[in-house]
Design a protein around this nucleic acid. Structure first.
Length: 116
DNA sequence: ATTATGACTCCCA
DNA sequence: GTGGGAGCCATAA
């Protein structure tokens, strides 16, 4: 397992992430990686490092986001739920807004994915 | 000071 | 489709 850290300017980065996540329409999903791309790297960080860690930082921001942020609309690039503890709850939240899961628990990104 | 810890993605067997 | 490794460092305890 690779290690990762919180980003430089964590507060600013996470706020930007939350604002971006709030733009995901109801009934759609977005990936950690796509959110991090849309938000962009904090100044002073090189692209390769950000490519590697950005998505995980987005995950970190989802772990403690303020009310009003639809954290459940963020899933991984494979169309699956990354969270372990709250996976069922997240799935319910998505199904309530008509997002469908395959038998293997996957969301069709072509159908439900939001690219920003 | 040292250690454990994280809601990821890509690439290649 | 599934499995493992690489990416490489800030916080909290």
């Amino acid at each position: 397992m690779p290690r990762f850290t919180t980003p430089p300017d964590r507060e600013g980065f996470e706020e930007a992430v939350w604002e971006m996540v709030m733009q995901i329409p109801r009934g759609r999903v977005c990936t950690y990686g796509r959110i991090s791309e849309l938000v962009g790297a904090p100044s002073g960080m090189d692209a390769p490092a950000f490519r590697a860690f950005g998505p995980r930082w987005v995950g970190g921001a989802m772990a403690h986001c303020p009310d009003g942020v639809p954290w459940w609309r963020v899933i991984n690039a494979q169309g699956r739920i990354s969270q372990r503890e709250g996976a069922e709850r997240q799935r319910r939240m998505l199904e309530e807004e008509r997002v469908e899961f395959s038998e293997r628990g996957k969301v069709d990104m072509g159908e439900y994915g939001w690219e920003g």
